[in-house]
Design a protein around this nucleic acid. Structure first.
Lengths: 201, 201
DNA sequence: CGCCACCGATGACATCTGTCATGGGTGCAC
DNA sequence: GTGCACCCATGACAGATGTCATCGGTGGCG
């Protein structure tokens, strides 16, 4: 019997996925929680065999949670489920020791299979996603360029970004400019969107 | 027995929700489809009692689909499930004749209840969502202002927006400016984000 | 009819943004 | 030690953007 911890902030979806996995005779959903901290404490208390994490969560993102889980409970296998399967995120997840990576567009049946694979210590990554991730090279952006792009994501002005990062406005513009040229973008918003889609933000 | 049509582009989630609803003895999921056109043809063929629609779908949005369903099959009750419950969207959905409106953060159990309410012809809207929608007034933006904001959403330049809408650059700037002042935004991106969050885009 | 809201446009102006050259500082690798 | 990449900053410049005043046209409403 595979003892499973389910983490997803959307209650309805979490319950639905639990119902789906409960149909499998060899899977036992021992706990469902809504956020990272709750997941950590539940994992500590219950020591599940497999943790299934939603990637998109307010507060802590799924990869960070996977890292924290792996650090504290190396025996718990981690499977990540995500809506938008961004290549760079897959890369980070794999190096964080995540065994399974499934987009929400995958067949419903496949989740249980991936859980079993992970439980057996085998890696499973959605094939289409894997090839896409191979086509996208390493991230060419420096840490600071990523910082300014993160702030630029939701339309902040240069002055606002500069204030938040304690930089001069000119420096912010320089970072944005170099990021834009690296990403072949016309505006910083396009650059930020591109970087996000590639999973670099 | 309530005959139900399930529409969601995310296969995994769709299957999970189907599993959840299948647990209810009085609900029968007669079909699951991934997009608007498939939903319409399935509904024509099967004439389900209730259709459960995901709001966020590529191509056709959930409210438009609800309108189309209602126009063609007035007897099919519509329930909408959504991730981000934007007030303005709720307003549009209700005037489109949608009976149930549930955020994905709701209790898993509640979906089946809402389906039963809708089947009985009763309206059910998530209470927190309803009060939020009441607090947000009517949309103060003119159709053209909404147009330019829509185009501005993903970082297009003024000149690009002008080309796409067959307007002069100056006119676009005027619309953006007035929209920004109405929405109390510093940049057009902030304005577009705000308008979207309120469900006006 | 006048009033008013909306549409579309123009011109002028201040500010913001993107680009480039240039500089100094740190730390790592050969 | 000499590159080299990165960090942070400044100054200058062209072009984009936001604001404002103003104009003409359309159509609804009292």
């Amino acid at each position: 019997m595979i003892r499973l911890l389910l983490v997803d902030d959307e209650h309805l979806i979490r319950g639905a996925v639990a119902a789906l996995l409960a149909l499998e005779p060899d899977i036992d959903v021992v706990a469902q929680v809504a956020d990272g901290p709750a997941a950590l404490s539940a994992a500590r208390a219950l020591r599940p065999d497999v943790a299934v994490l939603d990637l998109e969560m307010p507060g802590m993102d799924g990869v960070s949670l996977a890292e924290a889980l792996r650090a504290e409970l190396p025996d718990t296998r981690v499977v990540i489920v995500t809506r938008h399967a961004r290549p760079g995120v897959l890369r980070r997840a794999l190096s964080a020791g995540v065994l399974g990576f499934v987009p929400k567009t995958a067949q419903a049946q496949s989740l249980a299979d991936v859980v079993r694979q992970a439980h057996a210590g085998r890696r499973y990554v959605d094939p289409g996603l894997a090839t896409e991730a191979l086509l996208v090279g390493e991230c060419p952006l420096t840490p600071r360029e990523l910082d300014v792009l993160r702030e630029a994501r939701d339309g902040a002005a240069v002055s606002a970004i500069a204030r938040k990062l304690n930089l001069s406005a000119g420096t912010v513009r320089n970072y944005l400019s170099s990021a834009m040229s690296k990403l072949d973008a016309e505006t910083r918003f396009e650059a930020a969107r591109r970087a996000w889609e590639l999973g670099w933000l």
